[in-house]
Amino acid sequence: MIVAGKTHKLKIFAFCLASLLLYGSAIHAAHDAAKSLRGPAFSDPTKHMQMPASWEEQPVKYESSAGDVSLAINLDQQMYRVLTPTIKEYAKKHGLNIAITDSTCGNSAGMLRRKMIDIGGFCCAPGMIDRFPGLRFHTTGIAPVALFVHPDNPIDNITLDQARRIFMGKINYWSELKTSDGRPGPEVMIKTVGRLHCKTRPGHWRLLLDNEDLFSSRMFEVGNISDMILQVASNTDAIGHETAWLATEYYKDRGRVKTLKIDGYAPEDLDALLSGKYPVYKTFSVTTWEGKETKNSVAGELVKFIKNQIETLDAGYGIVPISRLKKSGWKFKGSELIGEPELNN
């Protein structure tokens, strides 16, 4: 009987140990899986594109149609809308003729590669393909990427895992999610709308799912922000992603949308973003040329002005300036943001 009792205890101990190991490994695996789904937030600032020597010697040459300009800038869509009036005021004040174009990170990269502009604006953290010799990135701030739905959608909050599973096509019905009062969402299929821009740049949607192959084959892709808002605002069953200000404010003429909380944190909660609790964001930056043939002190002054403007920008634009990022432990190399703060838990 004693032998039998000991054996029994041993069996229980073994079972508990095995359960703990399994549980631990399951958590570890889940953590790893989540980590593997998340793409990089930043690229290695030390690596850059190899360009011919002749290219490096090339000075900045503006497009002929730009006319006689003292500075040429290409800004990303959000910064163009936020900063253009103040830049124009700055130009007026300093007697400068600044040509500003409204475009994308890809265009900025292309124009920089062709050395057509002095300052390139990026709404994504720069990728290796954007890093040209003699080009310096200055981070201006970060902004949360909101997941948003039609205002009639009763779902208000989802977990990051659920968000990923929605876009991966593993959660297909809104009824698989819960409303704030614990009831299941509507029994309709989720229509995911994606804008998989800047695939070679880190951050942005890649913090949700690293690459386009992870997204559901059912996902409806659009080519620009305006169409994204239009699609979600006109479909009660749709979900999309974009920076909160563009989604809820700037493009509201395209239709109204409602942002979702992720793990209980709203994209408008900039403190949550700063502390790393809100997981998806965009990194804004502008560039200056530092090469002998390309350096422009006027551009350097303008970049300083832009950074200062963002520091004093209204919180409604949803942009966290670099001073707050630095204070919250975000990692910088020079003037470029290169890493997230260490999380305590």
């Binding site: 174009t101 292309g110 800047c198 892709e221």
Partner: peptide, 13 residues
């Protein structure tokens, strides 16, 4: 008119 080809790379405006 609308549209930047930000689903790809473009050095064209």
């Amino acid at each position: 008119e609308e549209g930047f080809f930000d689903y790809g790379n473009s050095d064209l405006l």
